[in-house]
């Protein structure tokens, strides 16, 4: 099994880099690339205390699998990929996304990691609501999935 894609209910379970490292470990791989995204304490000058992630679960998992398979086909068919994303209320410092890639060489490992991150942002139905220190909250703008009209 070379692929692990999960949406983690962050109030019940943590995203673990140790689990990711164990998953991608292989004697066949000369490179491991790990990207960790965390909830940060500031956005556009506002003090952020937490982010709530909402997700269309089934569509997210479908998109994760499709993105990872695209990445493997594009860069390294034998790559091992671990992808987890948070769902629910995540305070500042919490891991929101973890992508770990084990590949034969560093170039492919870096490229797959970057490719997955950018595609998740553009394909996976996940939404962020920021919670601010002043008690306000706001859904963040994003990328529209509305099909383009044919001309």
């Amino acid at each position: 099994m070379n692929l692990h894609t999960v949406l983690v209910k962050i109030e019940e379970e943590k995203i673990s880099s140790e689990k990711a490292k164990t998953f991608i470990a292989s004697e066949k791989n000369g490179a491991e690339s790990i990207f960790i995204g965390r909830v940060r304490n500031e956005n556009s000058g506002k003090k952020v205390t937490a982010v709530t992630y909402d997700a269309h679960d089934q569509a997210v998992i479908k998109s994760f699998q499709s993105i990872c398979n695209e990445a493997k086909n594009k860069f390294d068919k034998n790559a091992k990929i671990f992808l987890e994303h948070a769902k629910g209320y995540a305070p500042v410092g919490e891991i929101s996304i973890l992508i770990a890639v084990g590949s034969g060489h560093r170039d492919e490992a870096f490229k797959i990691c970057r490719y997955i991150l950018e595609e998740v942002k553009h394909q996976s139905p996940i939404w962020k609501k920021e919670h601010y220190a002043d008690g306000k909250e706001e859904w963040l703008p994003g990328h529209s999935l509305r099909p383009k009209k044919k001309i």
Binding site: V60, S96, I126, W127, S144
Partner: peptide
């Protein structure tokens, strides 16, 4: 689904606002 997708009575659909995970 496209804008011309015909809906059925009692159909269940999801609204997908612009996305932005990560």
């Amino acid at each position: 689904v496209n804008d011309n997708y015909k809906l059925k009575d009692k159909e269940f659909i999801s609204i997908i606002p612009p996305i932005g995970g990560g």
